[in-house]
Simulated assay, not measured.
Amino acid sequence: METRRRTILKAVIWNMIGLCVMSVVGLVATGSAAVGGTLAIVNTAIGLTLYFVYERIWSKIHWGRFHA
């Protein structure tokens, strides 16, 4: 099982990577840094929340884990 702090840190780092990627994709898709950036921020906020919930649920599932 991992701690909430670890889950939060993993979620933040993963979503920072996603924010950068989505900013570029949004810019290319819309031609606007403002619109692309807004899309990226909204996507990141939603993704961060869902990732955290997803990881917390999986942290309680013992299937497929090795216990030393």
Rank of each mutant, 00 (worst) to 15 (best):
M1H: 05
M1A: 13
E2V: 14
T3Y: 05
R5D: 11
T7R: 07
T7S: 13
K10W: 00
V12E: 01
I13W: 00
W14M: 11
N15W: 02
M16I: 14
M16E: 05
M16A: 09
G18T: 15
G18W: 14
L19D: 03
C20K: 06
S23K: 00
V24P: 04
G26W: 01
L27D: 02
V28F: 07
V28G: 01
V28N: 04
A29Y: 02
T30E: 09
T30S: 12
G31V: 09
S32G: 05
A33K: 08
G36R: 04
G36Q: 04
G36E: 04
G36H: 08
G37D: 01
G37N: 06
T38H: 12
T38V: 11
A40F: 09
I41E: 00
V42F: 02
V42Y: 00
A45C: 11
I46S: 00
L48G: 05
T49K: 01
L50A: 04
Y51W: 09
Y51A: 04
F52K: 13
V53E: 03
V53P: 02
V53I: 14
Y54N: 07
E55V: 07
E55T: 15
E55Q: 12
W58L: 15
W58F: 15
W58D: 15
W58N: 15
K60H: 11
H62N: 12
H62G: 02
W63D: 07
W63F: 02
G64N: 12
G64T: 14
F66I: 14
F66D: 03
H67N: 10
A68L: 10
